[in-house]
């Protein structure tokens, strides 16, 4: 019996299953006219063993795209007299600016909660870290982040978003919204067999901002004195020109 199990474990290892995937574009430049784009990920399972024994039924693929982590502050409004006022606040670090997960089935049917938690698969299994020494935040604050990011299409969970085109070829479409944060994203593809991860594949996706607004953002933050002075001079010049135009019309 032990031998049988061992042989089952090691036999496929000789021709281990592997994943390969590619993005329709792996370097996206956001310019001032960027209104969002669709990215297509194609993938294939190599050395797929056991197709003959009908193993296709227990085969699942999960695609995760994570943007770079940032710090966010969550504030909760409470009623104070007649007005609503921010009372409590919690700061989280390592909150992905973008998160997308697509799978062949709803995630709960693919793996147990412990596995989903370990690999941060699904909006309910993301972990937002608190800064060192901070007290535990109630789960409501965590959910508020997911809600806010989902409203801006920055967080997205698509059960059934991964489709198999043929026996081992699959694809998924990743919708990137216009307010995409820049940075290097991690794209990970996981292959599940019987609710366990058997192999994974990772590739980076670079999102960079270009154009005038990128330049202005950096300018405003790097040289605030010069930026402020130029804004004032530009405004004064516009006022002066309009005064000149107005005088000519009189």
């Amino acid at each position: 019996m032990v031998l049988l199990i061992l042989s089952l474990l090691f036999a496929p290892a000789a021709r281990a299953e592997e994943l390969a995937a590619g993005l329709s574009k792996d370097d996206i430049k956001i310019s001032s006219s960027f209104t969002g784009t669709d990215l297509v990920l194609f993938g294939a399972i190599e050395n797929e063993g056991g197709a003959s024994i009908g193993i296709v039924q227990d085969r699942d693929v999960v695609v995760v795209v994570r943007g770079p982590g940032t710090a966010v502050t969550v504030r909760r409004k409470e009623r104070l007299g007649p007005i609503w006022i921010n009372r409590d606040q919690r700061r989280f670090v390592g909150v992905p600016g973008f998160y997308f997960v697509a799978s062949t089935k709803p995630l709960a049917q693919i793996a147990d909660a412990a596995t989903l938690d370990r690999y941060h698969l699904g909006l309910a299994h993301l972990d937002f870290k608190l800064p060192a020494g901070a007290v535990m935040a109630p789960v409501d604050y965590r959910n508020a982040i997911v809600r806010a990011k989902s409203r801006g299409d920055l967080y997205n969970e698509q059960p059934g978003g991964v489709q198999f085109l043929s026996g081992s070829l699959f694809r998924t479409t990743i919708a990137l919204p216009s307010n995409l944060p820049s940075g290097t994203y991690d794209v990970n593809v996981y292959l599940f067999r019987k609710h366990e991860i058997v192999t994974a594949f990772g590739t980076p996706l670079r999102i960079g901002k270009t154009g005038v607004e990128r330049f202005l953002f950096k300018f405003a933050n790097d040289l605030p004195w010069v930026y402020g002075l130029l804004a004032v001079l530009l405004a004064a010049l516009a006022g002066w020109v309009s005064a000149l135009l107005f005088r000519q019309r009189q």
Binding site: A71, R75, N86, V95, A144, R147, A148, N221
Partner: peptide, 9 residues
Amino acid sequence: DPYSVVGEN
């Protein structure tokens, strides 16, 4: 939504 989320640059 009583919660508001502010990101840091």
